[in-house]
Amino acid sequence: QIFVKTLTGKTITLEVEPSDTIENVKAKIQDKEGIPPDQQRLIFAGKQLEDGRTLSDYNIQKESTLHLVL
């Protein structure tokens, strides 16, 4: 699982696999929060994550925290 922290300070927990794409993660966030993926920007280690890449591409491991910017 990974954590996604929103600007409001809320933390969302997501069940993911390293092979999941960023697009996939955004879809999971939409399921939980109702935020359309095209409004979501995910930041990890100061980098904006691209939809077509996977979590493992960015070396995002379990218990990692991503930041969600709208």
Rank of each mutant, 00 (worst) to 15 (best):
Q39H: 12
V4W: 01
Q1A: 08
Q48E: 15
R53F: 14
I43E: 09
I22R: 00
L66G: 02
E15T: 11
Q40Y: 13
P37W: 10
T54I: 06
F44P: 00
I60Q: 01
A27C: 12
H67G: 06
E50Q: 09
V25P: 00
K47V: 15
E15M: 13
V25I: 13
D51Q: 05
G9R: 04
I29K: 00
L68G: 01
V4R: 00
Q61F: 09
D31Y: 11
K28P: 00
K10I: 10
Q1I: 15
I22V: 09
E50D: 09
L49I: 04
T8Q: 12
F3E: 04
P37C: 11
V69W: 10
I22E: 00
Q48K: 08
L7K: 11
K26T: 02
G52C: 12
I29H: 00
D51H: 06
P37G: 07
Q40G: 03
V4K: 00
F3Y: 14
A27K: 14
F44V: 04
K32Y: 08
G52N: 11
I12Y: 06
K26E: 01
K62T: 15
K62Q: 14
G46I: 02
G34M: 05
A27R: 15
S64R: 03
D20Q: 05
K62P: 15
V16C: 12
D31M: 14
Q1V: 15
Q30E: 10
E50L: 09
N59H: 10
T54S: 08
T54E: 04
V4G: 01
D38M: 10
E63P: 03
T21Q: 04
E17H: 10
P18D: 09
I43A: 05
E63H: 12
P18T: 09
V16T: 05
G46S: 05
A27E: 10
E17Q: 10
E33L: 15
I60S: 01
G46Q: 04
T54A: 06
K47Q: 15
V69N: 06
E17L: 11
N59T: 05
F3W: 06
K47G: 06
G9V: 02
S64G: 06
Q39T: 09
Q39A: 09
Q39I: 11
F44K: 03
E33C: 15
S19R: 07
E17F: 11
P36A: 10
E15W: 13
I2G: 01
T54Q: 08
N59F: 08
I22Y: 01
T11L: 14
I2Y: 05
D38H: 15
G34H: 07
T54R: 11
L7A: 13
Q30M: 12
R53K: 13
L68T: 02
F3N: 05
T54V: 06
T13C: 11
G46K: 04
D20N: 07
D57V: 03
L66A: 02
L66R: 01
S19N: 11
L14P: 00
R41F: 14
I2H: 01
G9E: 04
A45Y: 08
E23D: 08
G34R: 06
P37E: 07
L55G: 00
R41C: 15
E50A: 08
Q39R: 12
A27T: 11
Q48Y: 13
K10R: 12
D38G: 11
L66T: 02
L68H: 01
V69P: 01
S64I: 05
D20W: 09
L14I: 14
D31W: 08
G52Q: 11
Q40W: 06
Y58R: 01
S19Q: 10
I12T: 03
T8S: 15
Q39W: 10
G46F: 04
L14A: 02
N59E: 08
D38W: 13
T8A: 12
T65G: 03
Q61W: 07
V16W: 12
K5M: 11
T13F: 08
K62R: 07
R41V: 15
T65R: 05
P18H: 08
Q40K: 02
R41H: 12
L70I: 15
V4E: 01
D51E: 08
T13L: 10
A27D: 07
I43L: 11
E23R: 14
D20G: 03
K62L: 15
I2A: 02
V16M: 08
L42G: 00
V16G: 03
T11G: 03
E63Y: 13
Y58F: 04
L42Q: 00
